[in-house]
Design a protein around this nucleic acid. Structure first.
Lengths: 235, 235
DNA sequence: TTGTTTTGTCATAAAATTGTCACCAAATGT
DNA sequence: ACATTTGGTGACAATTTTATGACAAAACAA
């Protein structure tokens, strides 16, 4: 396995353990940062394949960094394994909610860590594309994190953006609410399926301009879910 | 979410928690077994979708059951989530190595459990990569959940869609109303046979376009039922 | 902190789908 | 031709599924 690993901890013991583990990885790096801001910067620079995130960082809590990572288009689909104290169950749940891919309890064996890393890396294969997508009169630019119809920028929340991005990269196919939750929200959160409806509506509304109504691109597939299709409208 | 869940534990608290969680699952079963032998038997019989496996079973250890499951062709790719004690790290690693899909530490929150179950089940729900069927000028695409005649999409309800799909995959053969009810509606519902007539009509109507009348593909077999046949029309 | 935005969930409205009927038309049998 | 059986059709009320507005909690930004 080849992985560049970036580690953010202040726990010396953990670091040593990491390094020991690191030896089993072909090429890894071990970094430190004292706050979420810096850490995020480093991560953006280094583009690691995997982040081992200590929940208790010296200044800020790990959750802030994790949120930051998930919010940022560039680091959104980074693999993040968090390290939590043995009895810190709340944080663990919270961490999974916010979008950690997995967690490991400290102290951990290198064996366990390896197993997890393997599992996780096996699980996630696809890297994201960063080129702007253009469909049905809509242009979505991942870099600037914006959407245009013609040249007019559209306003929408983060979730709507993700939803739209998913749709634009997966056209002409019906998805159930559950699938959308998995794909857009992430598979480790549990929210009502009806929530999807609401966001669909918000997205549709956002896609309405004075000129056109691109919201019609999102079609309801009764009894199934929704579909993004250019058949019919807003060419 | 629909899941038949089989739980093997002797820990009362865990069972209660499971049941609480179980209530959120549509249809689950909770079983107990005191040794790997029995448990394996039960699992083979019941064919559950998911196994929640307590690592510390009364007689044998969970690992034996897990190994057994992984060895048996029939149960090889069952989803197995193991429940481990908080500080039982060795077993956790061992479990993952032997082939558990995930583990949850006791005590666990139902929220965490739900998230995990959901994630695991979604992950393994292998999408039926159904290819689109093309018959008699009609094209039915399961992925987009749509039907086209030429390039024009047709409108129809869910039941009509299922009915058409069945017909297109079972051409040139007459089916009684009862058979159609079984195949399309499902064998465990009771509806009047004449209901089929009505849906046949609705389907026929949906299959009429300005151009052609593909509804004629559905032929009446008097005294018997209906048949889907390309002989005659809408080439 | 405070004010603003985003989010998930509900309650309710709106819309589409469904199963049955009653009645008409066509076919079948005598 | 008449009576009987079987299928076609439009209508309709019940049910199911979606759409929508409102709201409070959470997350954010300042």
């Amino acid at each position: 396995m080849t992985a560049t690993t970036i580690l953010i901890v202040d726990d010396e013991a953990a670091i040593r353990e990491m390094i020991r583990v690191g030896l089993e990885l072909a090429g890894y790096e071990c970094l430190e940062a004292s706050n979420a801001q810096d850490a995020h910067g480093i991560i953006v620079d280094q583009r690691p394949d995997l982040v081992l995130l200590d929940w208790m960082m010296p200044v800020t809590s790990g959750i802030e960094l994790l949120r930051r990572l998930r919010r940022d288009e560039v680091t959104r689909d980074l693999l993040v394994i968090m390290l939590t104290a043995k009895d810190d169950e709340d944080n663990r749940v919270q961490g999974l909610d916010v979008g950690a891919d997995d967690y490991i309890t400290k102290p951990f064996s290198s064996r366990e860590l390896m197993a997890r890393i393997k599992a996780i890396m096996r699980r996630s294969t696809n890297r994201e594309q960063e080129e702007s997508i253009e469909v049905g009169g809509l242009k979505l630019d991942p870099a600037s994190h914006r959407v245009f119809v013609d040249t007019q920028p559209l306003e929408m929340g983060p979730t709507e953006f993700k939803l739209l991005k998913f749709f634009m990269t997966h056209q002409e196919r019906a998805y159930s609410r559950g699938q959308l939750l998995d794909q857009v929200w992430g598979s480790n959160v549990y929210v009502e399926e009806r929530t999807v409806d609401v966001h669909i509506r918000r997205l549709r509304k956002a896609l309405q301009t004075d000129q056109r109504d691109c919201g019609l691109l999102i079609q309801t597939v009764r009894g199934t879910g929704y579909r993004f299709s250019t058949t019919g409208v807003c060419a």
